[in-house]
Design a binder for these strands. Structure first.
Lengths: 256, 256
DNA sequence: GTAGGCTATGACGTAAGGTAAGAGTCAAGG
DNA sequence: CCTTGACTCTTACCTTACGTCATAGCCTAC
């Protein structure tokens, strides 16, 4: 009868010696016998069992499961395989979701910086855009408008578009509060929602101080660019100013 | 300014306290400050960072990678995501392979026991099958034939079919050795190949003694059922007997 | 006799926490 | 004032399936 040393068996089956030591230790694959010096000796039976082990390992079963499968001849292997299939399917679906999310994230990131100054005002007649800039700059200062534009630009096209869509939702709620005090708890609660949503488009984490500034600046932009506060095609400058006040107050009271 | 205790932050973000302890320990997310009693205090900034961490964790990034991504603003995130996509794709392909293998295995197992006595002899006119049985039983004893049939049945339809296909290959080699001594090294070497292939269809591991018996019994079956030794539609009883001798010799010398 | 190769056991490390022990902290109620 | 209960701290061991030493014993060849 043939017998193999650890190294021979390991080489034969393509595993490491350590693996055989482990399998011996946990009782998954014991050597047929030992020499006087406690050297492990494996026989043909052990080679066969090892091959079975490796087969199930290929299928991603845990060593514990493999031991149950091999030791209990009445083990319901088909059932085990079916449930294993299910878990593999779940893993696959999860990976699909991950891939989709990553793709979205990549698209999102790539659209960053792609927003040039022209794109920022695309959709508006150039002169109109410029005139709004001038008017807003007069009212709020050149620096404020530029800061707000930078902030918006860093948000990327996707964020930009989504932000507009988002506005529709929040507009419905805030529009009803137009006559409330922008500093009231009622309004501030909605603004908090808006802040948390908006923040998701702002790349890497910044200090709260910076975020406060940026958020307040975004409110300024609302005033400087009517597109953000258009509802059903009509601009609502008083809504923009309402929002600006509410956002700045939020930034100053909640974020500092 | 708001501040959160470990438990509050944990609950807010849906992680465990231990997780926050760990993130603190590895420097991934340090508390903004500590109380006098060394209680951890987290602020709004930490909540934001934690949410970023969880986002990347959702994408199956390791904590190490996440730390690099978050700490280095110049990190090439798009590149990291692309390569992450690749590794996810590989995992998905691997899972696809596993699923296919499992399906095959299940089919294989299900065809076990489905092989009734009639199916065993399907394809042969019933009387022919019966007559072969009788003749073989006379020559080798009823018990031998039944044992061989059981063995074959336990192999399942898939194994049964594949075994026949397999025979075509080995037949080409062994047919040329028909006039050699079945016990010669030349023949025995081919038989060893055959044994190792055949064994793959024999479900769970058995003792070598049992395998030896089964393998020898399979040789008997070859003689009792001409379908195994048909080459181009012609039966070759002398080939069957040659095989039987070689297999029995192999079982007795190599497997005991 | 010794060099080189094989073997044994034991122990530590990995990733991302879970679980638990022992001790200190804090606010509320009696 | 004291106790109770909830919370927190640190330390440390457990998990998977091994890889990687470290130390020591064994075996064979020259």
């Amino acid at each position: 009868m043939k017998h193999y040393s650890v190294k021979q068996l390991a080489k034969l089956a393509g595993v490491s010696v350590r693996t055989l030591h482990l399998y011996d230790q946990i009782g998954l694959l014991k050597p047929a016998s030992r020499t006087e010096a406690r050297y492990r000796l494996y026989g043909e039976n052990e080679l066969l069992r090892l091959q079975q082990i490796l087969f199930y390992k290929e299928l991603d079963f845990s060593l514990q499961d493999i031991e149950e499968i091999l030791n209990d001849p009445h083990f319901d292997l088909i059932h085990a395989l079916e449930s294993h299939k299910l878990s593999l399917r779940r893993r696959q679906e999860r990976i699909n979701t991950l891939l989709a999310t990553i793709d979205k994230t990549i698209v999102h990131l790539k659209s960053h910086q792609m927003l040039s100054h022209e794109e920022l005002y695309a959709g508006l007649p150039k002169e109109t855009g410029e005139s709004y800039r001038k008017e807003a700059s007069k009212k709020y200062g050149v620096k404020t408008v530029e800061t707000a534009e930078d902030q918006l630009r860093s948000m990327g096209k996707v964020g930009f578009d989504q932000l507009k869509t988002e506005q529709k939702d929040i507009a419905a709620k805030l529009f009803a509060l137009l006559n409330e005090d922008p500093h009231s708890a009622l309004v501030q609660q909605q603004i908090a929602q808006h802040y948390h949503n908006t923040r998701m488009f702002w790349g890497t984490a910044q200090s709260l101080d910076l975020q406060a500034e940026a958020y307040a600046g975004l409110g300024d932009l609302y005033v400087s660019d009517e597109r953000f506060t258009m509802v059903d095609g009509k601009s609502h400058p008083e809504y923009a100013q309402f929002l600006q006040k509410a956002m700045r107050y939020f930034a100053e009271t909640q974020l500092k």
